[in-house]
Design a protein around this nucleic acid. Sequence first.
DNA 1: TTCCTTCTTGCGAGTCCATTGCACTAGTGT
DNA 2: ACACTAGTGCAATGGACTCGCAAGAAGGAA
Lengths: 151, 151
Amino acid sequence: MSRTRPPLAPDVQTVEDVLALVRANGGRSTHARRLLVSALFTRDDHMTAEELAADVHAVAPDVHLSTIYRNLEELEELGVIAHAHRAHGPATYHLAGRGHGHLVCQSCDNTIDVPDTLFRSLVRLAEETYGFAVDPHYTAISGRCEACRGS
Amino acid sequence: MSRTRPPLAPDVQTVEDVLALVRANGGRSTHARRLLVSALFTRDDHMTAEELAADVHAVAPDVHLSTIYRNLEELEELGVIAHAHRAHGPATYHLAGRGHGHLVCQSCDNTIDVPDTLFRSLVRLAEETYGFAVDPHYTAISGRCEACRGS
DNA sequence: TTCCTTCTTGCGAGTCCATTGCACTAGTGT
DNA sequence: ACACTAGTGCAATGGACTCGCAAGAAGGAA
């Protein structure tokens, strides 16, 4: 499979679409791969590699965690999914779809998905002032959510 | 030492000031502690625990890494230093001073310090829309720096 | 100074999240 | 059916911390 640049996710809407895309890029549609993509579509949420592995394991217990990681990397290169890093704990993966940022509460660890519009000013200022191209999706923003503010 | 709330860093300008603050909070001014604080002041930069340990080890080779971590935690509780998480790699520690955010390049890993003003709009929108209090210091923002954009 | 309390430290072990090398297995085009 | 190579399981490794514990050192009291 070519590992050069993400072909910017076309409209892949189903598990089969993804597998087709994988195959179109020289990959193979394996059991583990299919199950992982299914898990991603079924929950359509932010999930850690461990959580995805748990879902896969419900059906196929011997899919190894390293296989999960390798496939996640693969799918990310194809532009099917994206992952975001949080200050603490494992990264979360989610279907690429429309881009969005993440606010993560330092206390309860909850993630709030937010539209890119929230970052517009930051992106512009960083660009103008430092020539820095902010990727608002890659790092989750830390803070405290409404429920946790008070303590 | 009371571990309740950070007493919001007073004006501590020197190593001795910090040690005094530590003692005022029931801590002791130990060899390891003094060396760590020195390293922090000497470089006055963003440093990882390992880098700080290296500086300390230049003088006292048997200060254990766990001691470095414990002291960093201690100093952070006293408001003397702060740390920021980056998407990859270890956290970086720096003197608290005036707060600032961080832009970290995904390619070259360089950190750019930026004033809080860059985050003003994000902070306001997150607050208004989600009741979420963004802490722009805690998580470094990922992206690509001027030099690395092109590849 | 000596003593005593309690904070600190060194060290080793352990945890969490992720990555890698390797030999074996299994998709695929032919 | 075959061969070629992508993919997989497994174990080991690695980075960055974190923790428990017993020994050691600060600093106030006597």
